[in-house]
């Protein structure tokens, strides 16, 4: 009696790949010195940690509000500055509008802005220009430039050149070509990038305070260091509420502007 025919042949490549991944995971775990014993102790600690977080303590709401407002200011300013600086950078980086000697170095600069994590940039700014919101604004402006300028340049590279040529053929000057031939084609996508970046700057501005660059992050880090876990819970809940609110508002704005 022949055995039942298998419906699918076993996929040995996939199985070997999964095995290799598992072997790597085990090896890397031992390399990092993570042991089961340590994880077990950690789980016990996690229970105590969560117990101390509850109930959230909103008694110092003034400090909380002050930090949140500063984060909001950092987010607004860095987004505005980032957009302002990204407009020329994006135009300069677009390979269909700029000559290679201009677009190549601009693309390099934008890639550099994007490669370094904003917290690292924030540390450097804190060391260079001192503690406070200014360092946060500077760091997030750099991050915004890296993101918006790159996507803006890519959007410009995808435009139809017919309209640009038509405007040019009518004898328009270079600014007029940009204003009437290029920008109308990318404006709606540009608004989308800017709103996305505002969202992401708001998230990040609640964090740069950990390295001293202003905003609620400083309050959060201080509360962590003092083991004020119920205040930590209050801060985390407020941050999540703020981000959630910002997402709702930016969704509405996107609908209104289109």
């Amino acid at each position: 009696m022949p055995s039942a025919r298998a419906a699918f042949r076993p996929n040995w490549t996939a199985r070997l790949g999964l095995l290799a991944l598992a072997v790597y995971a085990v090896w890397a775990t031992t390399q990092l010195g993570i042991t089961g014993e340590r994880l077990a102790t950690g789980l016990g600690e996690a229970g105590r940690f969560l117990a101390r977080m509850w109930p959230p303590n909103f008694a110092r709401w003034e400090l909380l509000l002050e930090g949140l407002l500063e984060s909001l200011q950092i987010a607004v300013l860095s987004t505005a500055l980032g957009i302002l600086l990204s407009l020329p950078l994006g135009l300069m980086a677009a390979r269909n509008l700029s000559p290679a000697w201009l677009s190549a170095p601009t693309r390099g600069f934008v890639a550099l802005c994007r490669s370094l994590h904003y917290v690292i940039v924030a540390i450097l700014f804190v060391k260079a220009i001192g503690f406070g919101a200014l360092a946060g604004v500077a760091a997030l402006t750099v991050a915004s430039m890296g993101f918006i300028a790159k996507l803006f340049a890519e959007a410009i590279e995808e435009i139809s050149m017919k309209q640009v040529e038509a405007v040019r053929a009518s004898g328009a000057s270079a600014p007029a070509v940009l204003l009437y031939g290029v920008l109308p084609q990318v404006a709606s996508r540009f608004v989308g990038f800017c709103l996305y970046q505002l969202d992401s700057n708001l998230r990040n501005s609640t964090l740069v305070g950990i390295v001293g660059a202003g905003g609620i992050g400083g309050t959060l880090f201080a509360a962590f260091k003092r083991f004020d876990y119920d205040f930590v819970a209050a801060i985390l809940l407020s941050i999540i509420a703020l981000i959630f609110l910002a997402e709702v508002i930016s969704g509405r704005v996107r609908a209104a502007l289109q």
Partner: peptide, 25 residues
């Protein structure tokens, strides 16, 4: 933007010598 510019706590001396400090770093 106006609200953020007017109320954010930026120390003017820090802003003034920022480029010099960055160069130094």
């Amino acid at each position: 933007i106006v609200w953020a510019v007017r109320t954010v706590e930026i120390i003017p001396e820090f802003l003034a010598d920022a480029p010099q400090q960055m160069g130094d770093l």
